[in-house]
């Protein structure tokens, strides 16, 4: 067993994914159940309806599996720490959420997730289950707009799953659910920054290296490189740097547009800092004429005790706004 230099309250460092998963199922107080190796599926799902399945690697809690819930995802297929779920796990989850109308896979754009979900989909199709896939690629800093297929999926997952989850409570067909999920993705952009690495639970090793006097602008949630390092700066200096990257992207954000604005901590960045950043960011949004329909300030998309934040913007049209306003409840995100 590796020594754990990160001083974490765990048991066997190699069993973290299985154990946190067991804990997660318990956190649902009987509203969801364990399926197969490492999938969680809601009980009491709408019959004869298309299903919403999310998933990804563990270690980023409360995502991904914590976004399973009422008005959220129907189920999640969970991998090991920082590793996409295997095709077997995807298949088990697919079978469990399917209610005869097919299953939408909705997950972040990582090579491992794409390949494993694709193999899982092939297995599901062999069993006669219709599968569609929508890939979340909200991370503006990871590739230019003309190479969206190379963009990572990061904190934009939360508004996207919220919207798709609301759609899943109403959609008549898998196609309709996929259309709305894709629209939510198309309307969502995120830029993150990091100030400190998280650690790999199995080894206690940091996930990356970062000097004390710099911020990684546009970094991914595993420490993937973004647009570059900038000198450590104040919240008031940082907020416009992040927003400018989002504004410079291809999503039109014009005066009068309504948005969801999500300020996310990557782990150990404290809510105090998120609120100080929100104070810096909101006037900039308002100056551009954007109307914030809902603000979310929380740590939902994390990488262990990594420090850093991300801003996500989701633009709401009338259809998405109506879906947004539906209540939802999950371990990771709840709204009345």
């Amino acid at each position: 067993m590796s020594s754990n230099s990160a001083k974490k309250i765990i048991n066997d460092p190699l069993k973290c994914a299985d154990e946190l998963f067991e804990g997660l199922v318990l956190a649902y107080d009987g509203k969801a159940r364990k399926v197969g190796t490492r999938s969680i599926v809601m009980n009491d799902l709408r019959p004869d309806a298309p299903a919403l399945l999310i998933g990804g690697g563990a270690g980023h809690e409360p995502i991904y599996h914590g976004l399973v819930g009422k008005g959220m995802a129907d189920g999640a297929a969970i991998g090991d720490i920082f590793a996409a779920p295997s095709p077997d796990i995807v298949l088990e989850a697919t079978q469990a959420v399917n209610r005869g109308k097919g299953v939408l896979y909705l997950y972040g754009n990582y090579a491992g997730d794409v390949m494993n979900f694709d193999i899982g989909a092939e297995l599901a199709v062999e069993e006669g289950i219709e599968v569609k896939t929508v890939i979340i690629n909200d991370d503006v800093a990871s590739a230019p707009p003309d190479a969206k297929h190379n963009r990572r999926g990061v904190a934009g997952l939360v508004p996207v799953v919220k919207l798709a989850g609301a759609a899943a409570t109403k959609a008549a067909s898998l196609d309709e659910l996929a259309r709305i999920a894709q629209k939510a993705v198309d309307n969502t952009r995120t830029v993150g920054v990091s100030t400190k690495p998280g650690s790999i639970p199995a080894t206690g090793q940091p996930t990356f290296e970062l000097a004390d006097d710099v911020i990684g602008l546009g970094m991914g949630i595993h420490g993937e490189k973004g647009v570059g390092l900038i000198p450590m700066c104040t919240a008031d200096e940082l907020a416009p740097k992040i927003l400018d990257l989002i504004f410079a992207d291809d999503l039109p954000l014009n005066a009068g547009d309504e948005i969801v604005f999500f300020v996310n901590s990557l782990g150990s960045t404290h809510m105090m800092e998120l609120l100080i950043l929100l104070r810096a960011a909101k006037p900039i949004l308002e100056k551009r004429g954007l109307k914030v329909h809902q603000t979310i300030v929380d740590n939902i998309v994390t990488c262990q005790e990594m420090a850093g934040v991300s801003f996500s913007i989701t633009k709401l049209d009338a259809e998405l706004k109506a879906l947004w306003d539906l209540p939802c409840e999950s371990v990771g995100y709840t709204k009345l």
Binding site: G57, G79, D80, F82, A83, A84, P85, S86, P87, D88, I89, Y110, A111, G112, M115, N116, I119
Partner: peptide, 15 residues
């Protein structure tokens, strides 16, 4: 490998 690993390399080496 395919069923136990997950991640990019589970799919890659499994395949």
């Amino acid at each position: 490998m395919m069923s136990s690993m997950g991640g990019a390399s589970g799919a890659i080496f499994g395949t």
